[in-house]
Amino acid sequence: MFPMFAAAGVSGCSGDLSTLSPAGPVAGSIATLWWVMAAGAALIFLIVMVLFLLVWLRPNFGRSFSQRAWILGGGLAFPIPLLVPLLVYSFQQGEILLHIGGPTETPVRIEARARMWQWEFIYLDEDTAPSTVGVLHIPAGALVKVTATSEDVIHSFWVPRLSGKVDAIPGHRARVRFLANTPNTYRGACAEFCGSGHAGMLFSVQVHKPEDYARLIKAARDTSLRASLAQVHP
């Protein structure tokens, strides 16, 4: 474990896990998606309820359309034009988020290794593959790719303010890519039920200025690190 990292406890302000206060482009665009869908859903809900109450309370209104028109109109003409664009948009959005940074930008590669009930983060870009437990350090503004896996049961890596979750499944390696805009500390949680320590399986993400991050990583290559590594991987 990085000695200086260990000091950084889990801290933060309220709303620390809120998907609605995004701190990076991935979580940001999903939050926007949510607001758009919520507005659309509210509208659709109102329309359906108003129609329901209208046919109920104003029988003459209801009869002005044939039964066929009601069923085809309400069942096909109403939902399909709304759903198809939503699907296309979300597919595009998914592709963008999945490939955020594009093929050119090389991400900072991290392995999130879960076990009951803690997270260990391995910095794959360094040849000594140093690791930290409970705290993930990343540079601000840089693309990060986290590969999640587990040593025991299924867990799920989730930093709500930065991006969606990805399951840590034994025998599998699933990935998630995201960016953090500015230096700060964010909270992460395990989202998949993993036994009695599930609620406490929290971690924090410390986002550093790029130069600070570089310094940390350099320090991490120190020999002191190897000693602590031996602890982690006996």
Binding site: W70, G74, G75, L76, P79
Partner: peptide
């Protein structure tokens, strides 16, 4: 699977509007 999941809303809507149509042409 997302497409299939979203599209299942269509027959559900048919179902719901069949009820609305029944009410619309009846005397509730």
């Amino acid at each position: 699977f997302a497409a299939a999941s979203v599209l299942v809303a269509v027959p559900t809507a048919v179902q719901i509007f069949a009820w609305i149509a029944t009410l619309a042409h009846g005397t509730p």
